[in-house]
Amino acid sequence: MRKNTGSLIVTYVFIAVLMIIYLFPLFYVFNTSIKSKTEYIQNTLSIASSFRYENYIEAFNRANFASFIGNSVFYMVVCTVLSIMMAVFLAFPISRNYIKFSNAIYLLFIAGLFLPDATIPQFQMLLKAGLYNTRLGYMLGLMGGGGIPLFFFVSYLKNIPRDFDEAASIDGCGYFRYIFQILIPLMKPAIASMAILSAIGVWNDVIRAIIYLSNKSLFPITRGLHVFTGQYQNDTTLQMAALVMVAAPLLILYLFLQRYIIDGAVAGAIKA
């Protein structure tokens, strides 16, 4: 495209407006979170006169964030590790056509994308199994078995030569050892993408936590934020401090692992 001063100005104005719409709200949230309550009430738009980190300490303690964060980390690790492992062990034989009906199994998983929402019967099932309001029930409801990671891994594995499989198995390397010691290291970028997306999904979940958990001591962080903001409706500065604490880990993760996150998101969309 050739450079043309007029259109370049229009372009930059367009970008500037876009940036204001995207960045101002986030800046405003942060600014509110470091103000004192009176400062906020007097003028919502004023720039904070000082960094009131006390808001953060107060919100952290009153919201009981320590327990929520602990829960979230636990759910993230378990759900992510299990769903990635299941997807790897399914994707490998399917991508290589090592098992009978590979295509049929693959299609079965794709069909899941076009079926009715499963939430209600899932809930009934976990309720009957006595798993309502338990960590296990929540994670079962939250975890995906296959889906995007499966599609992503199947296409990724097609780029890893089959010769590796044969060389390893002829040398007497067992199947599970092969997957853990050779294949998984080779799949690192793909696994990283999917693991980060899964972890973000668990961190951000509120709905499953509302549906499956009633005991506050089991709540993950974003559900905890939901409860806290409901309780402290008039304490905007504390609310925003809590909000920033929930968003900050995501932001940091995003800053460092942006490539993986976007690759995963795009690949998921194109495959689906």
Binding site: F89, G112, A118, T119, P121, Q122, I179
Partner: peptide, 21 residues
């Protein structure tokens, strides 16, 4: 190796999906 994923999918996703009907 594929058993956990298939089992999980059928019990937690496919089955409930059809059960909605």
């Amino acid at each position: 190796g594929i058993l956990p994923a298939v089992l999980f999918y059928v019990v937690m996703n496919l089955g409930p999906s059809i059960a909605t009907f």
